[in-house]
Design a protein around this nucleic acid. Structure first.
Ligand SMILES: [Zn+2]
Ligand SMILES: [Zn+2]
Ligand SMILES: [Zn+2]
Ligand SMILES: [Zn+2]
Lengths: 142, 142
DNA sequence: CTAAACCTTATAGTAACTATAAGGTCAAGT
DNA sequence: ACTTGACCTTATAGTTACTATAAGGTTTAG
């Protein structure tokens, strides 16, 4: 039996996060010692290790809860896990594409800004470009 | 003078977001009509358009507030804007690198999962791999 | 006997909103 | 005159996955 602090050390999950997981029922409420301290056993350690890794793979807590619910009901979660992974992968790919578009836009603006004067009215300067974007601005202002 | 609904339509920012921006002092509290409805003028429209675009570039509201504060104090925000853009760009690049690493890891696990059996104990199956990672698992289990 | 290093619960804060409740105002139609 | 619908108002709760803080109880070492 380990205390919450020891569980935290063994898993690298903070004690507050562990209590939070218990609160949202991702982890079962553990036994309590006479002093009302939480006491965890090996299966709790294993469960939390799984949660930790799944979080590192950026699985949502709701997805992790569903995966663990499968197991708790003696059904293999494998298929569900595969689905979540597939969804994660396409979500990430979309996010990366969005971010790269954004990065290109910012880089272009930044480059343009290097050649522009300061302007308190934000008409001649890079700030103006933020508002209008580059496309309608190259060479002809308004 | 335009109402909040008209301002919303002209800028593509929801009325709730507009009220929220007012609450956090990103936008000044506008005049009120006799019926206590908010009334906006052209400078409000322009300011909100700037905010909208900056948000599309994923500037944080705090950064946008600082940019607008420069202007409100008659100082050109250009330098600050350039700094924020530079920071944004490197933050995005780091995030993209992180996401790509994550994507690769998930894709590898997913591929491995296709060849693995279902296992309610999560020992032989892809779920197990989630817990341990791939590196310590290829070919030799425990 | 007291100080530290634990543990407990409850609550607030993070970012940038969205959604809802409960109500007031206004123009149009019957 | 009255009702319907589309506006507007404020206040509050919810989203995600936690972290941080407050205010206190317990245990161990010096
Ligand atoms: Zn499995
Ligand atoms: Zn222009
Ligand atoms: Zn400027
Ligand atoms: Zn193994």
């Amino acid at each position: 039996m380990v205390s919450i602090g020891e569980l935290s050390q063994q898993t690298g999950v903070s004690t507050q996060a562990i209590r939070y997981y218990e609160q949202i029922k991702l982890l079962p409420a553990p036994k309590r010692a006479d002093n009302s301290y939480r006491e965890y056993d090996d299966s709790d350690v294993e469960r939390l290790q799984f949660v930790k890794r799944a979080r590192q793979l950026d699985f949502a807590l709701g997805d992790i809860a569903e995966i663990l619910a499968f197991r708790d009901q003696n059904e293999p979660p494998c298929q569900y896990v595969m689905n979540v992974m597939a969804q994660q992968i396409s979500a990430i790919e979309e996010r990366v594409a969005d971010l790269q578009r954004l990065r290109d836009e910012l880089a272009t603006l930044h480059r343009a800004g290097l050649t522009m004067p300061e302007d308190i009215e934000m008409k001649q300067c890079v700030c103006h470009l933020i508002k209008t974007g580059l496309s309608n601005e190259v060479g002809n202002d308004e």
